[in-house]
Structure formats: C-alpha cells, structure tokens
C-alpha cells in the first residue's frame, strides 16, 4: 500500500515537472513571443495623458496663457509651484497683474495632476518626458515661462 502511494507520488511529481518544462521549452523554441525590448534603442511611446513633468506651452509669438491666479500653487500638495507676480503697465496707463517668474520644482513633484486640473486657463500641461536624471539637483528647479514672454491677448 505504501509502495503504491510512493510510486504514484513519484509518477505525478515527474509528470508535473515535465508539464512545466514543456511550457518553458515552448518559449525557448519560439523566441518571437518574447517581448523584451532594449532600452536606449527602443523608447516607449507614451500616451498623451502620461504625466512626465509640468510645462507651460508658448505659441510662436512667445505668449502664454498664465494669468498668475495661483490656483495651481494652492492646489499643489507639496509646494512644487511658486509664482512671483508683477504689475504690467498697460498702454492706457492701467496696471495689470502678470507673472514674473513661474518656478517649478521638479524634484518635489509627485505628478498628481492636481495643478493641471485646477488651472482655469489651461496654461500648464503635462509633458511626456520621463528621463529626468541629472547630475546636479539644482537643475531640477525650473523656470517655466520663457524670458520676455507675455500673456496672450483676450485671456482674463
């Protein structure tokens, strides 16, 4: 009785190992089903919603849509965004609030997307860039508005 059980165990054990080896062998002889990609040569095509970093798009006239309302600054949980505002003198002599510097700390950012959702004028968006490693930490603190840029006409 014991011997019978023992032989049965050995038989089912060897069978289970062979079933597993057959699966491994199948992938060994069909390397087309292997999906490994070499990284620096093939880079992932990321979807347009992927959150890489916050950028501020400028048009060809070097104009952006940021009014300096600081909604993104208030929405950010980590203090990633700091907006310094100034007052522009309009041609008619009136003062108008505008951004001086839009500081973005990439090293503090967790890509939670709350600033993009909070922005009323769609002035900032997420870029699909994911290779952020640098040698100096200071280069991760970025100024998003281009030098000399100003707010687009008609955005309040």
């Amino acid at each position: 009785m014991f011997l019978k059980e023992y032989i049965k165990d050995v038989y089912s054990g060897v069978k289970s190992l062979l079933i597993g080896m057959r699966r491994t062998g199948k992938y060994f002889i069909t390397p087309r089903e292997i999906i490994t990609e070499q990284y620096p040569e093939f880079r992932a095509q990321l979807s347009e919603r992927f959150r890489g970093e916050v950028v501020m798009p400028h048009d060809e006239k070097n104009e952006h849509a940021c009014t300096g309302c600081t909604a993104c600054e208030l929405a950010c949980p980590n203090g990633t965004i700091k907006i310094i505002t100034k007052f522009d003198i309009q041609p008619d002599g009136k003062k108008k609030k505008a951004i001086d510097t839009f500081i973005y700390h990439l090293e503090l950012c967790t890509m939670c997307n709350l600033c993009i959702v909070a922005c009323p004028t769609d002035a900032i968006k997420m870029a699909q860039n994911f290779e952020h490693s640098v040698f100096d930490r200071n280069t991760l603190t970025k100024k998003l508005n281009n030098p000399g840029s100003k707010i687009r006409e008609g955005i309040e």
Binding site: S47, R49, F50, R51, T110, M111, C112, N113
Partner: peptide, 11 residues
C-alpha cells in the same frame, strides 16, 4: 497609463 496618466500611483 493611457487612461489615468500614470502606471502605479494614479491619483
């Protein structure tokens, strides 16, 4: 990634 924008910590 396509729908939520992130692979692990989606929010």
């Amino acid at each position: 990634e396509e729908t939520c924008g992130a692979r692990l910590t989606m929010n």
